[in-house]
């Protein structure tokens, strides 16, 4: 399974034609206690780096940008009443949505885990 990260601190795991999207552990930590996640509608079409969801914490409200273009196929409904799961497990149980990938070549605009770790050090 391939894992990539965006400069806006989203992650995407690719399995065949399906991408699972979330925010990085680093982003969840920076946001602090997460109190609300606005999930996208299933069936919504998004372009790479466009807003797909939104997240609010005790400190701030932020948009979540889709790391890849595609169509939303499922959402993590657990987050509607338990957004704190993103703090507890941002890169596993705290996933936001899955997307049917429109253009697999777009991964060239993303970073590997090692590249993302380097990127975090540069911030």
């Amino acid at each position: 399974m391939d894992l990539y990260f965006s400069k806006e601190h989203e992650w995407v795991k690719i399995s065949g034609t399906t991408a699972t999207v979330g925010i990085s552990d680093h982003a969840a930590h920076e946001l602090g206690d997460i109190t609300f996640v606005e999930l996208p509608a299933v069936g919504k079409t998004v372009k790479q780096f466009e807003t797909v969801a939104a997240i609010e914490s005790v400190k701030a409200a932020s948009d979540i940008y889709s790391p890849l273009s595609g169509k939303v196929t499922s959402i993590n409904e657990t987050l509607e009443n338990a957004p704190e799961v993103v703090n507890e497990s941002a890169e596993e149980a705290g996933w936001i949505c899955t997307i049917e990938i429109a253009d697999p070549t777009e991964v060239k605009n993303l970073m590997s885990k090692a590249e993302y770790d380097e990127y975090l050090k540069s911030l």
Binding site: G32, D33, T35, V58, K59, E84, N87
Partner: peptide, 8 residues
């Protein structure tokens, strides 16, 4: 501002 976290 916080130690463990604001909610905790």
């Amino acid at each position: 501002i916080q130690y463990e976290g604001i909610i905790a």
